[in-house]
Design a binder for these strands. Structure first.
Lengths: 231, 231
DNA sequence: GTCTATAAACAGATAGAC
DNA sequence: GTCTATCTGTTTATAGAC
């Protein structure tokens, strides 16, 4: 079996034609895998969409499966770059002022999450790709879980804990953060149903604002109720 | 093109071998479509799983596409039978007592939803199937949306309105009900991530109880906050 | 109604010319 | 590195035997 050129390549060659073809193939396959699924996408379609030839897939990635793994790597890099700053640790005070600051950070995160996941076109491909991987785990999911899901969820739990006084790694907290994420994700997954039920033609910036407003209110309500339990 | 035997069949022939083959094909294809996707599933696999032969698919459903539509019909029937009683209209009093009764019905619905969607094995196939249809709408989605999504969502909005005093068909209410559904659905869609993060080996009855507890608390918190706005 | 054989198209992988 | 030609296996659909 030929070894694909997936590692050890020099960083100076980023704009060589080889790297351009490589990048174009990843972009095209991420889009097509997201739209039509891994099995539903042929290597011929990918090559055509990337303006490359079929043989280049075997050359760069060893085969179709290698392309899937490369997509996972691209997703990890992309989302880390976008989500990283938003969920970075910010200095939080103690007691009530710390809780308020943490809740403000949660507000900002919800707004960014909705903006990216729901309204950003590129997020559609990524979410669909991840969704399919979740339903049929491969090595690509391992990369996405370890590089993205786990660290982000853990960080969100910590922020939620700072905002409510709950323990960050408590089972209840972890489940609650999943439920909160679900509120947002569903607007992408069930987009078609949302469009029909809301009578919207698309979900753009204006619709994202409406969704953000509702989700933020929900999250506040949950946080307030949790905080109120301990008093 | 041959017309498939998809309509006009007599109801008395339910246990004939023809109907048995037909039912077996639908069950098998729903499971396989859910697991591996429509494109990822071959008619040979379906026929083998249903203990039928390949030709019978063309005979009963006209082809693979007809099988997809038949799956959608099966889903509408199944979910209507399960969800129907739970969301049926119950006599609600006026004022505060009516709100409490409506919230109690919401509690019961959340519990049933989590129990079915998250813990019931058959729900996995159905959710995965619907999920894939949502991301790539065909005529099968039209059937599911019209027969299931729209009426159930509308009914949930009405119950939520009775519990909170909001207007049932207000944009905000419709979005809020979507967000609440998202909380539950995510535990099925993101099951693999949930399993890993929670350290669970599977999601059974015991885990469903934990999830129900968290989601119910969230929903109560949201409902209470909404009700509190008007005072 | 069921099952088999086969057709026609398409898949991914690969060898080799350039 | 790129591109073409081709191999091998698999796909859905269908015609026809039983």
């Amino acid at each position: 079996m030929n070894e694909a050129r997936t590692s050890g390549r020099s960083r100076e060659a980023l704009s060589s034609q080889s790297e351009q073809t490589r990048a174009a193939l990843i972009r095209a396959s991420l889009r097509l895998f997201g739209q039509k699924g891994f099995d539903g996408t042929s290597t011929r379609d990918i090559a055509a969409a990337a303006n490359a030839n079929i043989g280049s897939i075997a050359y760069h990635f060893g085969g179709k499966e290698g392309l899937r793994l490369a997509c996972a790597g691209f997703i990890v890099d992309t989302v880390q770059r976008i989500a990283g700053p938003a969920i970075a640790a910010v200095p939080l005070g103690d007691g009530a002022s710390g809780e308020a600051a943490a809740m403000a950070q949660i507000d900002a995160i919800v707004e960014r999450m909705v903006g990216f996941i729901v309204a950003e076109p590129q997020a559609g491909e990524i979410v669909q790709f991840v969704l399919r991987e979740l339903s049929h785990p491969t090595a690509a999911l391992d990369a996405i879980y370890t590089g993205l899901f786990e660290p982000i969820h853990r960080r969100l739990c910590a922020i939620w804990a700072a905002a409510t006084g709950e323990e960050a790694e408590a089972e209840e907290t972890r489940l609650r953060v999943f439920a909160i994420i679900g509120q947002v994700i569903y607007f992408r997954i069930g987009r078609e149903a949302v469009l029909r039920r809301m009578g919207w033609r698309s979900v753009g910036a204006a619709e994202a604002v409406r969704i953000t407003s509702v989700v933020r209110e929900n999250v506040h309500a949950i946080g307030t109720a949790i905080r109120g339990r301990s008093s």
